[in-house]
């Protein structure tokens, strides 16, 4: 118990992510009633843990439920489908991609992002509902997201910040060019799905460049592609599509700009002594 508490205190940002995402899922199902089915949430969570467990066994790494849980919650929040089989397939594709699609001991795609784009492209029965959060929720959601930055002392937050700043700048430029009132650009930014994407998907330290300036370049690149998809080609879900297109660039950026690979938990310098500590010792980057 003491060790668990110490692990929590080791500021693993996933605990905060899990707490915020769980609140959002509960709020979405109970209050907003915008098409999240509780049985899909369970199918995604169970499948994700099963695949994570199997993948860990095969690859010989320690099983860690936390990342798979964050992925499950992101999938539940962003992916809409009426088919429980597709919901489970999303979890399988997401966690499976972590173990299969890898370069330099790092997985290439954000798991939830890879699963969402695969299903939206391959089937007619999965989609992303970007407008369903409503303006009333945005304030609270933005606060929860900012809390995340404060709590993690903005560590590795360069991707999120550079993405949001670049995306907002492009929206303001577009507004100015079209002589639109400022309220239109702000309305685009007050989008629940955009905030969830920025703070819980593109922020994933495992699939972003290792160096700080690499992450800034990456955030700006994703924002530019997202903007082009949404406002030049008029396709919805710009950010989600942009992230999957930009992901293969991460190993390239890493090759030019070296930096330390991310570990979820800052380890004390002493040797691990307890079974739990030994288990949480990162062997591979999953």
């Amino acid at each position: 118990m003491h060790t668990l508490f110490r692990n929590y205190r080791a500021s693993d940002p996933r605990y905060y992510q899990i707490a915020v995402l769980t609140c959002l899922v509960t709020y979405g199902i109970a209050v907003l009633d915008f098409g999240i089915h509780w049985y899909n949430a369970i199918a995604i969570a169970v499948t994700a843990q099963a695949v994570q467990f199997t993948g860990s066994r095969i690859s010989g790494t320690a099983f860690d439920a936390r990342s798979a849980l964050v992925t499950s919650l992101s999938l539940t929040l962003l992916l809409r489908t009426d088919s429980i089989a597709l919901a489970a397939a999303a979890a399988l594709i997401a966690i499976g991609s972590k173990f299969v699609v890898r370069i330099n001991n790092k997985h290439i795609f954000n798991p939830a992002n890879f699963a969402i784009v695969s299903l939206v492209i391959l089937t007619d029965d999965a989609w992303v509902s970007t407008g369903q959060w409503g303006s009333a929720t945005i304030g609270a959601l933005a606060l929860a997201c900012l809390g995340f930055i404060v709590l993690t002392r903005a560590k590795r937050a360069e991707t999120t910040i550079s993405f949001l700043v670049a995306f907002a700048a492009l929206l303001l430029l577009r507004s100015w060019w079209l002589s639109d009132p400022l309220v239109i650009a702000l309305h685009h930014l007050q989008n629940g799905a955009l905030l969830i994407f920025s703070f819980f998907m593109i922020s994933d330290p495992k699939t972003t460049p290792n160096s700080a300036d690499g992450r800034i370049i990456y955030g700006i690149f994703v924002a530019t592609v997202a903007f082009a998809i949404q406002f030049i080609w008029y396709e919805p879900n710009g950010p989600i599509l942009a992230l999957i297109l930009a992901s293969p660039l991460v190993p390239v950026i890493d090759a030019f700009r070296a930096g330390p690979a991310y570990r979820w938990i800052e380890r004390p310098h002493s040797k691990p002594t307890t079974p739990i500590e030994r288990m949480s010792k990162p062997k591979g980057a999953f």
């Binding site: 915008f34 407008g131 369903q132 959060w133 409503g134 303006s135 685009h188």
Partner: peptide, 11 residues
Amino acid sequence: TGRVETTNYRT
């Protein structure tokens, strides 16, 4: 295929 919804306002 199915339902239509607004992407920039809540349906």
